[in-house]
Write a protein that binds this DNA or RNA. Structure first.
Lengths: 247, 247
DNA sequence: TGTACATCAGTGAACGCGCGTTCACTGATGTAC
DNA sequence: TGTACATCAGTGAACGCGCGTTCACTGATGTAC
């Protein structure tokens, strides 16, 4: 019973998010819609921030599972395809839940400090994209520089792993080495530093595409949004060596 | 006198943006800090939204001129260098003015509808980045496919201009043709459709990098932020054929 | 089976706060004759 | 030079609204003996 009511509160809060944005989320409004008196909500959430935190965690989980499901529908060996459908899963979810997307990937809510609880679910999308790249890398399926075995042990140092090839990418900065190490442990097992850096860039870049579209920067600029996103996401996959053609 | 007071009001409002965010911007608070009574502000701005609009326009102008100035300090023929310093100019401005950045490139302010006045200044950054690419293209300085003259008249149709080369990029969707036409008229004179699409993607991607950093998604992920951004921005430039090495 | 008690979800009133916007007004400045 | 008038920046009070949070409380439910 208690769990059910808690669920109902967050459900209503999520709906209000869609009309007023995160800054306008109000415990009193939620209580009103629940048919409760405002103080009763404090039985379930001890403050407005706690409710916000719950919404953020739910948001990360929702987008994470949407991306996981989309990506799961693609043959395991079609790495560019997996990248593309994962990106499309992200975009589709964002278009369907713009305010939840804004809550977790948009400007921070002023005065709200995200607690540590939100860190773990935030990693689910990154985990999916990372696994695609490291799977492809270990299968030797990446195009361009950075194939495994070509140049020493991957990822043990910051030295550029592209050394045998014509330099397609700039040299990865040495200061990225510890970050690359952490990424390898978390989401990009086995990939070398440069590829890790470009994967991270591609990851952020895909969110840039989605944010631009969602936040209105493509108004009067891009008309065929689905097709453009497909093209752009596939091109960004090329950054991480996933240079296949879409479709 | 009137102009001076108007300037002072927006100045104070801009400062308040930095502490409370766009949603918390309040005419009364501005008036308080001006030492005026709240209704007096209505002599200068007929509503809160009008003040917001002024701030948005100022923000676009500020970031636009910051990027223009940064880019102007680079030799005209060093196209990858111009791209990189333009991106760095954007990032530096964003780090120095995070709330103004969030106001114009972050989640939309709920209940606020951007009027047409804001469209023109919004294009300044895009104009700088676009000019770099089209300059480089016309000088034949782009790496990879898409050099001028290699395959027919650039940009007259949606057919893939890469046809003679090994296919590095996916085929640009035909639905992008009208968008590419508009981009050529505005910021990318002369470039073919595919390059226009990748340039647009790179543009959005760079903002993705900046937004991720600013909105906290790189916390506990990237430590050497300056160096990583340099690497990532340079790599993204590669999307548009600006494949030079940074530095 | 029946009574005493504890638990706890939800109530209702209140605190103190802030907001955007309107409106009749004061009073200084500048202009016209 | 002096008076009458218009302009308009800024005042002060008010309207009606919403917010987060606290607190003493009611009253139903379930448990222990």
């Amino acid at each position: 019973v208690r769990a059910e009511l808690t669920r109902e509160i967050t459900e209503i809060a999520r709906r209000q998010l869609a009309t007023d944005g995160a800054a306008g989320l109000s415990l009193r409004a939620v209580a009103r819609e629940m048919g409760m008196v405002s103080s009763a909500v404090y039985r379930y959430f001890s403050s407005r921030d706690e409710l916000l935190t719950a919404l953020i965690i739910e948001g990360y989980d929702a987008v994470g599972s949407a991306v996981e499901q989309a990506e799961g529908r693609c043959p395991r060996q079609d790495y560019p395809g997996r990248w593309l459908v994962a990106c499309q899963g992200l975009r589709d979810w964002a278009l369907a839940h713009p305010h939840e997307y804004a809550l977790i990937y948009g400007s921070p809510v002023p005065g709200y400090e995200a607690p540590e609880q939100t860190i773990a679910p935030a990693g689910r999308v990154a985990a999916v994209l990372g696994k695609i790249i490291s799977d492809a890398y270990r299968a030797g399926a990446l195009t361009g520089p950075g194939k495994p075995g070509e140049s020493g042990e991957p990822g043990e140092s910051g030295k550029p792993e592209e050394s045998g090839e014509p330099e397609q990418w700039p040299a990865v900065p040495g200061s990225f080495a510890p970050d690359a190490g952490r990424l390898r442990e978390a989401v990009l097992p086995g990939v070398p530093d440069g590829l890790a850096a470009r994967s991270l860039a591609a990851w952020a870049a895909v969110f840039g595409l989605v944010s631009f579209e969602l936040f209105g920067q493509f108004q009067n600029v891009v008309t065929g949004r689905d097709e453009f996103f497909r093209y752009a996401a596939a091109s960004l996959g090329g950054l991480a060596g996933l240079g296949g053609r879409p479709g």
